[in-house]
Design a protein around this nucleic acid. Structure first.
Lengths: 239, 239
DNA sequence: TTATTTTAGTGTATGAATAACACTAAAGTG
DNA sequence: CACTTTAGTGTTATTCATACACTAAAATAA
């Protein structure tokens, strides 16, 4: 069918915006939810912190661009990645019309290797409630939206497991929920709910410490055929 | 701070993708959920039906582009509009690298005036379960995702009211829910739930027909201060 | 070596939300 | 005037959420 192709499609008659992919990278460090930011070296917003991102290449999909960006900033591959929203206001970048497709990434704290990139003077993890506001561009807005999405998806997906090591205790899992939701949960109800969901697999391992030793569990990847595997912590509060 | 601006930012050193905005336009026609499609006149996918869309201009935001596109196709303004997702696979358009930001629009059946556009030979409403598959490009995928989003948002937003005229009966509202969800709902439970939500305002008007006349209601826009105003039909089934 | 503290994990009572369905109401139609 | 049609209410059983009291098993302090 290539033969039927008429004249070369002339896209140059339109003025084109630039397209970037920005990745809001979350991780749980010292039991606290953190976000990775990069400090800008140059105008505009010189010195301000920003969500890492870069221009998309013509030979990669949006998700591939997000994974590349993620790996450039953290050295991490194979993490949870989800498209968040596309930001396209006319004046969001003073240099040029830039449309940014934002992604959310969740990386395990033990897997990350952080490298500084060429373009930026610094790369750093910040606790989500202590980011150096204001961020560059409209990145405050992007971060706020990412957090809101994270909170709402937490409740009906298995997303929280992306932040845990392979073996974990139920109370550690509960702690992640509390970190992201920003509120305390009832221990007994959490136990019951997560057990009933059938998404955890018991292991023979225990972890000792102060107090009674705790059983370690593993996230069950061989999901049962029925609907069961979607764990839903609570029904209310959505985006 | 403009003075500090160094050399003109040279975006031309990157090859730029084209950016389009596609709008999946839904309406309720003859008590059935329909979607608006346009028939392509030219290569590629000549003759196939497609979701209406067009290139973004440098002086308009994404949402402005979506509203412009919507008005060009339907003549309708001031409708419900929501960003759906951004599709950016490398090969989705054989002409050029094209990134499409997809929107969902809901228009009232009584308001629409449909005009054919220059670029396409035809514009037509199709019932959502009788679209002329396959659509052009990756539009089957976009439409499927739009429907899935519509279904899941229906349950925790007041989105269904966008498809109704100003005055409507409770059973008409229930019918919309059934159309979009694709299943029957219990009459008694629907009455109770919608009344308790406090989002409807009783009017003195009735509509006569066969059987007992029905009371007409209006969507309450002066939302009460508390959380009540989000109507949630059911808790389960999400995107 | 026994009491105390700490963390882990279970059991249960109460009230709220849901679902199924039987019932009453008010109009038109044969 | 019985019957059909559409509208709208009431009732009940069951499931689910919440709060919180309880038991369990270890380290640590006396």
């Amino acid at each position: 069918m290539q033969d039927e192709r008429p004249a070369l499609y002339d896209v140059s008659k339109y003025q084109l915006p630039a397209v970037t992919v920005d990745v809001v990278i979350f991780s749980l460090i010292n039991r606290t939810l953190h976000v990775l930011l990069v400090q800008r070296k140059r105008w505009p917003f010189q010195g301000r912190w920003a969500i890492p991102g870069g221009f998309i290449r013509l030979d990669e999909s949006l998700e591939e661009a997000a994974r590349r960006e993620l790996e450039e900033e953290t050295g991490v591959r194979d993490v949870y990645l989800e498209q968040l929203y596309t930001f396209g206001d006319v004046q969001r970048d003073p240099r040029h019309r830039v449309i940014s497709v934002a992604y959310i990434a969740l990386v395990r704290a033990d897997a990350q290797t952080i490298r500084a990139s060429d373009e930026n003077s610094d790369v750093r993890w910040f606790p989500v409630d202590h980011v150096p506001a204001p961020l560059a561009f409209d990145h405050d807005q992007i971060l706020a939206y990412a957090l809101s999405r994270l909170r709402s998806k937490l409740e009906y997906t298995t997303l929280a497991f992306q932040l845990l090591p392979e073996l974990f205790s139920i109370l550690e899992l509960k702690h992640i929920y509390e970190q992201i939701l920003g509120e305390k949960l009832d221990k007994g109800n959490f136990y019951r709910k997560i057990k009933e969901a059938g998404i955890l697999e018991e292991t023979p391992y225990m972890r000792e410490g102060r107090g009674r030793p705790t059983r370690l569990w593993r996230f069950r990847r061989d999901r049962p055929g029925d609907k069961q595997f979607v764990f839903r912590w609570r029904e209310d509060r959505r985006e």
